[in-house]
Design a protein around this nucleic acid. Structure first.
Lengths: 199, 199
DNA sequence: TTACCTTGTTAGTAAGTACTTACATTTGCT
DNA sequence: AGCAAATGTAAGTACTTACTAACAAGGTAA
């Protein structure tokens, strides 16, 4: 019984392949046969690790939650200038999304059909980001450097801008858009936002 | 042969039901049997009107393009104050999205699997909106009332904010969010944007 | 060696899928 | 009434799906 090396790597291979195929073909489109073949294992092995396709799906998205990627994300934001802090938050946000691109695709595609589980994970991530930014806005209000506005709404609009950018570039694969690098986009978006919220 | 009343309504019933079920269960999840039953027709009737499920899918999304809803959208924007013009564009944008909610769901869910057709329709809509707003920014630049910024990027960020709001409220069905009515959101978002782009 | 654990192979099941064929029934127009 | 188009009913085809049962093969630990 050796459960640390080979066994675990078989399981992980299946999970990785499942993530890729679920994201490419959807839950119904990705068959257990195909997942097993691409993972290089027999189909029956897949069912020995995961009792059903639905279990595999759940464990796949659980294994790719966003929250670990959030830890220690915004360390020294408080002592940075306002604009730089926002730029850093935006960049980190885009980085996480890029890292979890496949998971984002799955969630967008299957959100309607499997609401409970997916909404929970997705919203936990968004809420964490929005709350962090909103409370940062609150602090800045206290310091008197910002004009009055609804901090939660502002945080939502901030991430909304960047999520739409990510969506256009990475999910919709816009080839006909002239390509604009992330840095310039961050600068322009943050610029609008900084001027829009300062006194 | 009477093709205007009954015949057309049978076809339309199928198309309407297909839109609803494709949006709720996805392309693979919605079966032709179910679509026919919910439309109140025999399955074979469905195949007499649409030679294949894929044809039905294409005609469904073609019948629900965004562009007709865009016609005559922004009539008197040029003679409105800047902030009111932006608010009106935002409201119209949100209205169209709400009208085509099912289509948006389908596109988000099936974008990965059927890229060609869907991307075309989706992007045609977004490009139309972005270009309209960007050229409006260009005119305002000419008049000297706005600071210098990238008009296309700004337009994208503007719609990105509102699309994310729509997504959170209507697609993800956020119940745990405190509900904020559209008007207040439009006001807050536009406010940030106006201050962020004025001189 | 012996025992165990994990995997592969092969074959199979029961159910569901898109789609078809043949024939009967309804419906509206002339 | 009579014709023709649109629809319904019933049966069936060929295929795919998630999932299982039975047995053999390999490696690891005692």
């Amino acid at each position: 019984m050796q459960q640390d090396e080979e066994t675990c790597s078989t399981r992980d291979k299946i999970l990785e392949t499942a993530l890729r195929l679920f994201s490419k073909e959807g839950y119904l489109g990705a068959t257990t046969r195909e997942i097993a073949r691409e993972a290089g294992v027999a189909e029956v092995t897949l069912f020995r690790h995961f009792p059903s396709k639905e279990t595999l799906f759940e464990e796949t998205i659980n294994a790719n939650s966003f929250l670990p990627a959030l830890k220690g994300l915004m360390p020294g934001i408080r002592q940075m200038p306002y604009g730089e802090a926002l730029a850093m938050i935006a960049k980190s946000f885009l980085e996480i999304l890029a890292l979890r691109k496949d998971t984002v695709k799955i969630m967008q595609a299957e959100m309607q059909r499997y609401p409970e589980k997916i909404q929970k994970i997705y919203h936990a991530f968004i809420d964490e980001m929005v709350n962090t930014l909103a409370s940062y806005f609150g602090e800045m209000h206290g310091k008197g450097s910002l004009r009055e506005f609804d901090t939660e709404l502002a945080a939502r609009s901030f991430f909304g801008m960047f999520f739409s950018y990510f969506n256009a570039e990475e999910i919709l694969l816009r080839k006909n858009y002239r390509h604009i690098d992330a840095d310039k986009t961050v600068r322009e978006f943050v610029d609008i936002f900084v001027r829009g919220t300062l006194k």
